[in-house]
Simulated assay, not measured.
Amino acid sequence: MTYGLDYWILFAIWCAGMPVGAFAFLHALVQRADAYTAADRMTKLAWSLITGGGLAALYLFRPQGSTFILWMAALVAVLVYIVDVRPKLNEVQRGNRW
Rank of each mutant, 00 (worst) to 15 (best):
V30A: 06
T43L: 05
Q31P: 09
W98N: 13
S66G: 13
K88D: 00
A74G: 08
R32V: 01
V76T: 14
Q93N: 09
A22H: 11
Y7R: 03
M42F: 03
I13D: 09
F25I: 00
A38I: 00
T67D: 09
A56Q: 01
G17F: 05
A56T: 10
G17I: 07
A73P: 01
G65W: 05
F61K: 08
K44A: 13
W71D: 02
W8H: 13
A77F: 02
T2F: 12
G54W: 03
P19T: 02
R41A: 00
Y3F: 09
Y81C: 06
Y7W: 14
I13L: 14
N96W: 03
L10A: 08
Y36G: 00
A57P: 07
L60G: 15
A28I: 08
T67P: 00
Y59C: 15
A24S: 12
W8R: 09
W47V: 05
D84T: 06
M18E: 02
L10Q: 12
W47A: 07
A39E: 00
L49F: 10
C15T: 08
F23V: 11
L49D: 07
Y59M: 15
G21Y: 03
R97T: 12
S48R: 14
V76I: 15
G52P: 14
G53I: 10
W47F: 12
A73E: 01
M18A: 02
L60C: 09
T67Q: 08
A12K: 13
M42A: 13
V78W: 02
Y36H: 01
A39C: 01
V30E: 11
N90P: 00
S66F: 07
Y81Q: 06
A24P: 03
I13F: 09
V20Q: 11
T37V: 12
L26N: 15
A22Y: 14
P19K: 06
I82K: 04
A39G: 01
G21D: 02
K44M: 09
Y3T: 08
